[in-house]
Simulated scan of single mutants.
Amino acid sequence: MPVTLQPGEVFPDFELPDQDGRLRKLSSFTKQSEADKRYGFKDGYPVIVIFSRGFFCPRDQQQFKMIREFQNELKVNYCSLVSVSADTTQVSAAFRAGLGAHWTFFSDTDRKVIRELNILDETEGEYAYRSLPFTFVLRPNLEVHKVYNGWYFVGRPTLEDLRQDLRIIMQEMDYYTYEAFNTPHVKKIRIPQQTWLEEQGNDEEQISFEGIVESFDIKTGNGYIRSRELEEPIFFNFTAIPGEGYRTIRQGAKVHFELVKTHTGYSAVKVKEF
């Protein structure tokens, strides 16, 4: 059961249709967020790639039920997971919905990626011309960290195996430590709560701009403001809204804001709706 790729080698940045038929590249799951770019972090995030025989395989069904319990943990630890099979997009969508899965199901109906990785099963039986059940754990640059051979079910990774792999990778990333966020640069954009407490009663005037919230992602807490006075949309983190706890703001809201300049560009602070 030869596999072309080994740890240390680079995984192909494939582009395949997801369960909704949208073409997506693998690297889109590992890239930095817009906030990371503002903070000055250069590293992205690891991704787990599971090659599945298909919806009809009882061992795949068991593995995916296990992974389903892991998907919410992946969300909060900023890592990604995708699966690839030769199933059509329609079948993948139905299988995904039935499982209650949230991760991306890629369809490689032409077996292009499966062949490129040399993991096409050419034995007789119901699994002929399907992918061998391999799992790859990849670093943000798509370098292979670990390969799991699931020909026998015991060869597939447990959740604890995956946790350990992700921990090893992320401990090497530039954003992993507390100290990486506890810097003057980052705290100009991701503003500590204490800043607003200390500014109560501070009437020092700064140049203020008016604009409209062009977008705000409630999941990430990041958004952009469009102002007639400025050429480009201005990035802001929810912490730029004075207050306590997690703050949100609606798209289209009219706001006053000030600008802060960092070595990665301008960001908005003191974002206040009016």
Rank of each mutant, 00 (worst) to 15 (best):
residue 9 E to G: 07
residue 11 F to V: 01
residue 12 P to M: 05
residue 14 F to T: 07
residue 17 P to A: 04
residue 21 G to Q: 00
residue 22 R to F: 06
residue 24 R to D: 01
residue 24 R to P: 00
residue 24 R to G: 01
residue 26 L to Y: 01
residue 29 F to W: 03
residue 30 T to W: 02
residue 33 S to K: 09
residue 54 G to T: 04
residue 58 P to L: 11
residue 59 R to G: 00
residue 62 Q to V: 07
residue 63 Q to M: 11
residue 70 F to W: 15
residue 71 Q to M: 14
residue 73 E to L: 10
residue 74 L to F: 12
residue 74 L to E: 10
residue 76 V to D: 13
residue 83 S to G: 14
residue 89 T to C: 12
residue 91 V to A: 12
residue 93 A to E: 14
residue 97 A to Y: 13
residue 99 L to S: 06
residue 102 H to T: 15
residue 107 S to Q: 08
residue 108 D to L: 10
residue 110 D to R: 14
residue 117 L to H: 00
residue 120 L to C: 06
residue 122 E to F: 02
residue 127 Y to H: 03
residue 133 P to G: 14
residue 136 F to T: 05
residue 138 L to D: 14
residue 141 N to H: 02
residue 142 L to M: 00
residue 144 V to A: 09
residue 145 H to P: 02
residue 146 K to M: 09
residue 147 V to Q: 12
residue 147 V to C: 11
residue 149 N to C: 12
residue 149 N to Y: 15
residue 154 V to C: 00
residue 154 V to Y: 06
residue 159 L to C: 04
residue 162 L to A: 11
residue 162 L to E: 06
residue 162 L to I: 12
residue 165 D to M: 00
residue 167 R to L: 08
residue 169 I to Y: 03
residue 169 I to T: 00
residue 170 M to H: 00
residue 170 M to D: 03
residue 171 Q to N: 00
residue 174 D to L: 11
residue 177 T to A: 14
residue 181 F to C: 04
residue 191 I to H: 00
residue 191 I to S: 01
residue 191 I to R: 08
residue 192 P to I: 05
residue 197 L to M: 07
residue 198 E to S: 00
residue 205 E to H: 01
residue 210 E to C: 13
residue 211 G to S: 07
residue 220 T to S: 15
residue 224 Y to M: 07
residue 225 I to A: 07
residue 225 I to W: 06
residue 226 R to M: 12
residue 229 E to C: 03
residue 235 F to V: 07
residue 240 A to N: 07
residue 245 G to L: 08
residue 247 R to E: 13
residue 248 T to I: 15
residue 255 V to P: 11
residue 259 L to G: 09
residue 259 L to C: 12
residue 265 G to L: 13
residue 267 S to P: 11
residue 273 E to I: 09
residue 274 F to P: 02
